[in-house]
Every structure is written in structure tokens, then in C-alpha cells.
């Protein structure tokens, strides 16, 4: 693999891997807290944010879109908390109410405003444009040490790398209170861990990862990566530390294999068709989950009724 690969495939693969990992890390905790749907909620909820950001700024540039999406995600997280607390509704229902109503709001605003000139492409939103995140200025592997070529890398790569690093660093620093409060919230509160704030922070960080990934690779990956790698990882081990490790490996593997299969693999089978990289990445993560379900050494416990 030479110049071609570096130019056309390296950056999409890296972005895909980073996006997958950024979502998979908080996904571990969301799943254990039975909040896995949050990734789904966030990806629906960003629509009104993006539309509003466009109406306010008149642009579909990266920053307005990101700010709008992030704002909407925070509003959604706050709404879920508020509904849970004021309405005393179970979390799943609170999330459902929040994301459908915000999504509907987005559609309404879209209809009522003069946004017909904008191309808010559904397909783009779902699958992203991973294939377009190429590094045209690369001439080969040596470009990786060429400062001018490096500055011309797709900005999505830098952004996604920064977000992934931030997510990883936060998970590492707050590992212990996160672990304790995920396992036993009452005990965590009793020893003085601010469980409510921590739970909220987890949702915000998940939203950040989702929005960054959404911008780069579309919502299919986001939803899949919040759930599939952590769920598969749970069946590989009985230790939270190793589970998160496995989930990172599975997320990265899904992104890499998915992109490569979409880009090259089908031609190996003689199929000449363009397949969405993001769709294939999500599919591979599903296949890994299925394999873990069938062969994972610790699969017996997951889904077992919780001991009483």
C-alpha cells in the first residue's frame, strides 16, 4: 500500500477509528447504567440544533453546526434529567420523550423556515461522508513527517483526535468514581461521590463524542459504537478495566475492517459496488458482537437475569 492508500484511505480510517473509540469508551458505562439509548437520543436531537444554528448564523460551516449540535445535546441531556425528576418517569421513557419531541421540533423548524436552499441531506446525516475525508496533499507515507502536508490534513481528523483524547483522559481520571457509582449509586453517594453531577457529566461527554463523530462519520456509527463494542467486550471478560480495553480494540477493529471491506473487500469477491464505509463499519461491529455472543468466554452472564 503506497501513496494511494495514504491519500485516499489513511485519514478516513484514522477518523473512523477515533470516532469509534470516542463513542465506545463512554458506551461501556452507559450500557452498564442501562442508558445505552442515550447515543440514539443524542443523534436524533442534534437535528434541531443544526437547523437553529443554520438559521442564526446562515451557514452550514463546521463550527456553527458543531455548536448547534452540542447545544442541542446538552439541552436534551437536561431535558431527560428534568423529565425523570419532575415527572418521576423511568429513564428509558424520559429519553424516548426527549428525543422524539426534539427531533419533531427540528423537522417543524425546518418546514416553517426558509431553508429550502440548504441541502440538509438525510443520507449524509445517517452515513456521514467518511469517504470524502481524504488527504489530497499527501504524496505517500513520507507526508506523515512533512509539516506542510500535515497542516493540510482534513480538520475532522484533528478535531476527532482531540475529542477522543479528551474522552479517554476524562475516563482515566474519573475512572474510580465512575466505576463505583455505576455499580452502586447509593454507596457512591454515601462515600461522598457527587453521583448526580457525574452521571450528568457522563451524558455530556457522550454527547460531545457523539456530536464530533456525527459530524465526521454520521449517526449510524455513533449509535452502533455506543452499543456494539462495549456489549461484545462484556462477553470477553469479567473485569471492567479489561472490558473497556476490549471495547476500544473492537471499536478500532470495526472501523478499520469496515472501511477496508467497503473500500476494497467487495472487489475481492468480484462485486463492483460502492458501499458506504460508515454502514460497513457499523455492520462489522454488529458481526463482532454476534461472534462475541456465540464464542465469548464470559457470555453466560450477560442478559442473565440480575441476581436478586
Amino acid at each position: 500500500m503506497g501513496a494511494d492508500f495514504v491519500q485516499l484511505s489513511l485519514t478516513p480510517i484514522l477518523i473512523g477509528v477515533l470516532a469509534a473509540v470516542a463513542c465506545a469508551i463512554p458506551g461501556n458505562f452507559l450500557i452498564l447504567r442501562r442508558q445505552a439509548l442515550i447515543g440514539d437520543a443524542i443523534s436524533h436531537v442534534v437535528l434541531p440544533g443544526i437547523v437553529l444554528a443554520f438559521l442564526v448564523t446562515g451557514s452550514l460551516g463546521t463550527w456553527p453546526v458543531l455548536a448547534g449540535a452540542a447545544g442541542a445535546a446538552v439541552v436534551a441531556a437536561l431535558m431527560i434529567e428534568a423529565i425523570k425528576r419532575l415527572g418521576r418517569i423511568e429513564p428509558g421513557a424520559a429519553m424516548g420523550v426527549t428525543f422524539t419531541s426534539l427531533f419533531a421540533l427540528g423537522v417543524l423548524i425546518l418546514e416553517q423556515s426558509d431553508t429550502s436552499t440548504v441541502h440538509l441531506d438525510v443520507e449524509h446525516a445517517l452515513y456521514g461522508n467518511l469517504e470524502s475525508l481524504i488527504w489530497l496533499d499527501a504524496t505517500g507515507w513520507e507526508s506523515l513527517i512533512d509539516p506542510t502536508a500535515l497542516t493540510l490534513m482534513p480538520p475532522e481528523l484533528i478535531r476527532m483526535a482531540a475529542v477522543t483524547l479528551l474522552v479517554g483522559a476524562l475516563a482515566a481520571v474519573f475512572w474510580r468514581p465512575l466505576k463505583i457509582s455505576t455499580f452502586d449509586e447509593g454507596f457512591a453517594t454515601a462515600v461522598g461521590i457527587p453521583t448526580r453531577g457525574l452521571g450528568f457529566a457522563l451524558v455530556i461527554v457522550s454527547a460531545l463524542a457523539a456530536v464530533a463523530a456525527f459530524d465526521a462519520v454520521g449517526s449510524i456509527i455513533v449509535i452502533a459504537m455506543f452499543v456494539c463494542p462495549p456489549a461484545a467486550a462484556r462477553m470477553m471478560t469479567d473485569s471492567l478495566e479489561r472490558q473497556v480495553g476490549w471495547s476500544i480494540v473492537f471499536a478500532a477493529l470495526s472501523a478499520f475492517l469496515g472501511y477496508v471491506i467497503a473500500g476494497y473487500g467487495l472487489t475481492w469477491f468480484g462485486i463492483r459496488a460502492a458501499v458506504s464505509g460508515a454502514g460497513m463499519i457499523a455492520t462489522v461491529s454488529g458481526v463482532i458482537l454476534a461472534l462475541a455472543c456465540l464464542f465469548g468466554p464470559h457470555r453466560s452472564r450477560i442478559g442473565a437475569p440480575s441476581a436478586s
Binding site: L32, F183, F187, T237, D238, A304, A307
Partner: peptide, 12 residues
């Protein structure tokens, strides 16, 4: 806490 208040399938 009451034993049943946590999920004992937690990986630990």
C-alpha cells in the same frame, strides 16, 4: 445497601 439494589452482573 440492600443487596438487591445493585446489579451483580457488573464486571468486577
Amino acid at each position: 445497601p440492600q443487596r438487591a439494589s445493585v446489579d451483580w452482573d457488573f464486571p468486577a
